[in-house]
Design a protein around this nucleic acid. Sequence first.
DNA 1: GTCCGGATCGGACGAAACGTCCAGTCGACG
DNA 2: CGTCGACTGGACGTTTCGTCCGATCCGGAC
Lengths: 216, 216
Amino acid sequence: MGVPAKEEGADPRVRMWEPVGRAVALLLGPYAEVVLHDPGTDRVLAVWNPFTSRGPGDPSALGELAALDPAARDVYGPYEKVLADGRRLSSVSAVLRDAHGEPAAVLCVNLDRTPLERAAAVLSAFGAPTVRRPEPLFEQDLSARVAEVVGGHVRATGRPAERMTRPDRLTVVARLDEAGVFAVRRVVPVVAEALRVSRSTVYDLLADVRATSERS
Amino acid sequence: MGVPAKEEGADPRVRMWEPVGRAVALLLGPYAEVVLHDPGTDRVLAVWNPFTSRGPGDPSALGELAALDPAARDVYGPYEKVLADGRRLSSVSAVLRDAHGEPAAVLCVNLDRTPLERAAAVLSAFGAPTVRRPEPLFEQDLSARVAEVVGGHVRATGRPAERMTRPDRLTVVARLDEAGVFAVRRVVPVVAEALRVSRSTVYDLLADVRATSERS
DNA sequence: GTCCGGATCGGACGAAACGTCCAGTCGACG
DNA sequence: CGTCGACTGGACGTTTCGTCCGATCCGGAC
C-alpha cells in the first residue's frame, strides 16, 4: 500500500468521510472518539475528538479487524475496550468500501461509558437502603485471561502463536497492556509462554507498544 | 406539588410538624410520600403527597418499628418496603419528641426508587456491548478499589481507619484478598496507607487471614 | 503503682521478581 | 555473501516482596 497520509484532507478517503466522522463526534459530544483507519497500512487516517494523543499516521493496533468473523458483514461490535487509565469504552467498527467494493477504510467509534456508568451509579445509590453490593471480583486466573486474548488473535488471523509476525504480537501485547495485565506480578513469563517467545522479547514488545502509544 | 394533608389542624402536633412534612414532600418531588404517625394510637395523623389512599385516622401498621434496631436512637433506616403494585420504596423514620422528651409522633419518608432505578438502567444500557468482557485488572483502579472496600467497612461500622480494631482490619484484608488485590504489584503499601497501618502489619494481617481460611 | 501480653512499628535482610543490556543465533533478503 | 531485523539466553543491577526481630505503645490484671 501507499505512504499513509500525514495531512488531514490530503487523502481522498478522509475528504470523503470527514463529514461522517465530524457529525458523529459532534452528536455524541465529548464522550465519543471517531477514528478513520487505513486497513492496508494499519495506520490512523484521521481522528475526531481524540481520547489519547493519537493522530494521523500513528499505528492503529487494530489490524486484525479485517480477519474478524465474516458472518457480521462489515460491521463489528459493539465490543468493549479498556483504556490504560481505566475508562471503559464501547466500540463499533465499520468497513468502508470504494466503488469497486474493495475495503478502503475502517471507521471506528469509541464511546466512553465512564460518565454514564458514574451517573447510573449515582442514580441507583440515591436513597438506596444500606445493603451494599459485594465487590466485583477481579479476574482470578490471569493465565486464562492471557490465553483468551492470545487465542482470540490466533483465531482472528489464523496464525498460531509460533508463526505470528511482529505486528501480531504487538497487537496482542497492546491489548494486554490496555487491560492492565502487566500490573500483575509474575505475569510476564506467562505472557511469554503464551506468545511462544522469550521473556526478553515480551519486554521488548511492551517497550515498543508503550513508546508508540505515548507519542504526542 | 403533591396533595395537601386533609385539614385537621386541631391536632397541635400536625400544626407543629406540618411545615417539615410539606417541605420534604416538596423537595423530593412526586416520588416521596411523607407520613406523620401517632405512635400512641398507631394511626396516621397527616400525609403529604400520599402514594396510596391513606388519610388521617387510618391505621398506621407501624408496629414493626419497635422491633427495629434500638441502638439507632430515634432514627431508623433507610430500609426497603415494597408496595402492592411492586414499587420499591426506601424509607426512613424519625421519632419526634415533645418538650418533655416523650415520643409524640413518628415521621416517615417513603421514597419511590422505581423511576431512579429505571433511569439508571437506561443510562447503563446506553451504548453497552451486548456481551461484557470479563473484568480486567487495572492498576489505576486499584487504589480506588482499596479505598472503596476500606471506606465501605468504615461506613458499615462507623469506625474510621485510625480507630479500627484488629477484627475490623482482618475483615477488610480478607475481602481484599478474596478480590485478588494482593496479586497486583506495589499494592501492599497502598493497602497499608488506606488502613493506616504499617506495611509489616498488612503482611501480618494477611498471614492471619490466610492461616484461618486454610483451616477449614 | 507494676507487670504483662497483644498489637503495631520500623528497620534490616535475604529472596524473588523486575527490567535492561548485550553478545550471539537465525532467517529473510538483496 | 553480507546485512539487517527479530529473537534468544543469560548476566546483572534494581526494585519489590515477604519475613523476622527488637522496640514501643497501651489496655487490663494484679
